[in-house]
Design a protein around this nucleic acid. Structure first.
Lengths: 149, 149
DNA sequence: AACAATATGTTATAACATATCACTTTGTGT
DNA sequence: ACACAAAGTGATATGTTATAACATATTGTT
């Protein structure tokens, strides 16, 4: 596990992703950093790649967007160095409000590896995403229906 | 389940995806159909949307590409009408040769729904993808290593 | 200082996806 | 047969996401 601190640049990008309440696209991140001197897509994508490799963020494939890892991130604020790498997670996504919940489900990982066993000899990466309406939005939508919509 | 036959246009696009041995991007499909009068991206995307809604194809999120559904497709050749809709699958992807295997794994679906239960009230879509080296490519790669590469 | 390794900046372009509008075909009711 | 609605098609332009390629700067090591 790499212990090198993040560069100033990469840290800027991490701060933006970490503050967001929903996954951000690379260009949304770029827009929020223009005033701080970040001007071009490659700068953002480079940082995102580093952050993902070190486990600070996850890419949500079905959204083309990035979200801060929600497991064991407390320590980052202090050290800006270490982080839990290489774990796999599933993501539950609300199609209405856009919020995402990171799910650790070993049973799921196991079921997936097992299912792939006949075809893949080794596995390197996985992406598990499920989209629906979150509790909160489901309640609101029900409310709206009552008002004849 | 819709029983309307596919339009000639949509069927052309389906033929291309069905013949392929790996997932195709929309633009790869377009390139293979230019001589048959398909000239613009929207034409392809429209057909892909219809095909996906009716269960003839699946979108692979991590590849931005589309693959023919491999379950219960035999009948299509005859009727060009009915197809099993709305099932969920997982996909095992070989990063070397690009081939994809569609996995039906109820245990996995169940584990995923269960994991999402605290956050999502209703679920509508899911995407489960796992990338690695397939048996065949793993064997070849091992061979290459012996030759000092 | 000299060098390698890493990080950064910039331009251009590739790759993926959709909005919009005009026109045609098809199905339905009269 | 006619009028109308609905679905399908064609084409252009544009929006969005991602990377190639190259130049420059910074950092760490000897």
């Amino acid at each position: 596990m790499s212990q090198t601190p993040l560069s100033a640049q990469t840290d800027k990008i991490w701060q933006v992703v970490a503050k967001a309440t929903k996954p951000l696209s690379a260009y949304e991140i770029l827009d929020r950093l223009r005033q701080k001197g970040v001007r071009s897509p490659p700068t953002v994508y480079r940082a995102l790649k580093i952050l993902e490799a070190r486990g600070f963020i996850h890419r949500i494939e079905s959204l083309n967007a990035f979200v801060a890892c929600s497991v064991g991130c407390a320590q980052h604020a202090k050290t800006k160095a270490s982080h839990q790498e290489d774990h796999t997670s599933a993501f539950a996504i609300c199609r209405s409000c856009g919020r995402v919940e990171e799910l650790r489900a070993p049973a799921l990982d196991e079921a997936l590896s097992k299912a792939a066993k006949g075809f893949l000899q080794t596995t390197e990466k996985q992406s598990v995403e499920i989209v629906g309406l979150c509790m909160k939005c489901a309640t609101q939508e029900k409310g709206r229906k009552k008002c004849s919509r």
